[in-house]
Each structure stands twice: as C-alpha cells, then as structure tokens.
Design a protein around this nucleic acid. Structure first.
Length: 149
DNA sequence: GCCAACGTTGGC
DNA sequence: GCCAACGTTGGC
C-alpha cells in the first residue's frame, strides 16, 4: 500500500498504532478492499513521492473484519469529498490497518529495480499507478527478509 | 516543474 | 460505444 510520507508515513502509523486507510478514490482499489481484504492480511508499507527515499519502509496488518464505508467521501472538509457519492449507496470504502514493524533497511525503489528476484512486483511494472497492489507470498517474504537485515 | 501513463468525464 | 479533453499519479 502506497502513501506519501508527507501525508501519512510509517512513523505516523507507528505512533498511532493503527489507522483508517481512507481517501481511496479508485474503483480497482475499492474492489480489492471489498473482495480481497481480510483481517490478518499483511501489508507492505510503501513511501511514494518521498523527499528522502522512495520504497518499502515496513509492514502493517489489516485489522478490520471487512472494508467499510469511507466517511471522508461525505465530509466537505476532508481531502477528497465526493459529492457524487450517494449516502444510500456509498461509492468508497476504507479498511483499518495496524503497525507491525519498521524495516531496519529500507527497500528502495532503486534496489528493487536492480534485484533480479523481484521483477514480478507490480510496483515495478510500467504504468502502474494503483495505490494498492497484490504481492505474492514469495516476494513478500523476500522483501521482509531483505528489509529486516 | 516536467512528463508519461493512466483514469474519468461528458458530448455525440 | 467512441474519443477528446482534462485530472491525477508518481518518478525524476
């Protein structure tokens, strides 16, 4: 899962313990929240558009039983209100995510690009702009191993 | 700030 | 359904 560290970083998540992952306004990601996310799922936390280092900075975990209505879509004061979303049939969902661990060794985008064993990662594929992408168990384990070195 | 690669919107 | 215009993402 991507987040811009200026907006919400792994340090923010560590401080908060857990957070509502809101503001998703993309149908593919919403569908993943709805259909694929379950409590206990592990998440790689990725810093995008980072001033320092862009890459995977740690691990989080899904802690909501299922995706639920993202309250920010109806909040005019929020970052991404959606006036077209009908409260009787809301468009956008959110999940709760908890802090698990911070990598001692950030897996930078640069390092992942040059690692032959990680080339299947969706995040490395051209044109990928989704803020949430699936990661294979093999890649996940490998990334955690390298990140905690 | 630039720009490639999307995704969304709306006229037809 | 097509497609041009526009908006967004995100690396650099």
């Amino acid at each position: 899962m991507k987040s811009e560290p200026d907006c919400y970083s792994i340090d923010d998540l560590e401080r908060d313990g857990q957070t509502l992952w809101d503001g998703v306004r993309n149908y593919q990601v919403r569908n993943m929240f709805r259909d694929d996310f379950t409590v206990g799922d592990k998440v790689l936390f990725y810093h995008s558009n980072a001033k320092k280092e862009t890459g995977i900075v740690g691990v989080a975990e899904v802690v909501s039983d299922e995706a639920y209505v993202d309250p920010t879509q109806f909040d005019e004061a929020s970052e991404h209100p959606d006036p077209k979303s009908d409260p009787a049939n809301p468009r956008w969902l959110a999940v709760d995510v908890a802090f698990v661990q911070k990598f001692s060794n950030i897996m930078t985008l640069e390092a992942m690009k040059t690692d032959k064993s990680l080339q299947k990662l969706k995040i490395l594929q051209k044109g990928n702009r989704l803020s949430v992408t699936p990661v294979s168990l093999t890649d996940f384990d490998l990334l955690v191993k390298k990140g905690m070195k």
